[in-house]
């Protein structure tokens, strides 16, 4: 999967140049301007993140200096954050919420996609449309009924409340639907003739072959759930039961001008995602590109 993407990317670039060179001198951006453009774009993208990390390492007396590297890097800001707010607890909460949400996305998506691909049943088109169009409903429009329902179910201020409404997502179903559609039906038919039941076909034949899609969906769902802000904002009451995004927002409201600790808290909240990105950057980029923006 990753390689196919790269093949696509490199083939376009590779084939182009030769033939035309003889034609005539053409206006074509030189390598230097191309690199300059990309460096500028990369700088804009990465500098705020770099500045966050650098500021978090600066001592209190140095925080307002414009030095690009702290003269005496220290972890004091991190110590301060850990002593002021239950950061580790919130990181653990967020890991649980994001992990379970991602797993549920994958599972519910897998089941629903299997149903839609394997059977032509009455209303199947309608169901597909219902699921596919659910992204059209802005969350801000349904937030009040959602909130009322969550409070009626006793989900306020619980981690379960953050997970349950996000147990399924349209993009997960659609992504796996398309992945499964391209799965060769002959193999499934052969398995069926051997007497395999649907449950076994799904787990022993389809799932292993969809590993790449499932992994990329899982990564995407984990990162989205980790970064989710709006629903936790509605549900969270106590800082102990909230996720790290809410903790950050609360910390900012209380200590808005303690820039060093604020940057340390932001860095801590981003580290897990940045670590995933460092390890799996190709898969991460690809899974975002495959799913569109959500």
């Amino acid at each position: 999967m990753t390689t196919s993407m790269n093949r696509v990317l490199s083939s376009g670039a590779a084939v182009e140049p030769e033939v035309s060179r003889k034609a005539r001198p053409r206006i074509r951006p030189g390598a230097l301007t191309i690199h300059a453009t990309m460096i500028l774009l990369a700088f804009i993208a990465i500098f705020p993140v770099y500045w966050m990390v650098v500021s978090s390492l600066k001592a209190e007396n140095e925080i307002f200096s414009t030095g690009l590297w702290p003269s005496a890097p220290s972890l004091d800001n991190y110590g301060f954050v850990l002593s002021q707010i239950p950061m580790l607890r919130m990181l653990a909460n967020t890991t649980v919420v994001a992990g379970v949400t991602a797993a549920l996305h994958v599972l519910t998506g897998l089941f629903a996609a299997y149903a839609l691909v394997r059977w032509r049943f009455r209303f199947s088109g309608f169901v597909y449309g219902l699921i596919a169009l659910s992204w059209l409903v802005p969350f801000q429009v349904t937030m009040i009924p959602n909130y009322v329902l969550a409070s009626r179910l006793g989900l306020l201020d619980t981690l379960a409340g953050l997970i349950v409404p996000h147990a399924a997502a349209a993009f997960a179903v659609l992504m796996l639907y398309h992945a499964m559609k391209s799965f060769p039906t002959e193999i499934i038919e052969a398995a069926r003739m051997d007497g395999a039941k649907h449950w076994r076909i799904l787990w022993e034949i389809i799932t292993p072959n969809l590993r790449a899609s499932l992994a990329s969906l899982g990564i995407l769902a984990f990162i989205s759930a980790w970064n989710e802000y709006f629903w936790p904002l509605l549900l969270s009451r106590s800082i102990e039961n909230s996720v790290v995004q809410i903790g950050l927002q609360m910390f900012m409201t209380q200590e808005g001008n303690l820039w060093g600790p604020l940057m340390a808290a932001s860095t801590l909240a981003s580290l897990p995602i940045l670590a995933i990105y460092l390890l799996l950057q190709r898969q991460v980029i690809e899974s975002f590109m495959k799913s569109g923006l959500r």
């Binding site: 990465i46 705020p48 990162i223 900012m252 604020l262 940057m263 932001s266 909240a269 995602i273």
Partner: peptide
Amino acid sequence: LIFVPMIIAPVVAAIVWRW
């Protein structure tokens, strides 16, 4: 490098730009 902002949490992005 240019993809990094996409995975940064909106709250983090807000706080960093505020700084």
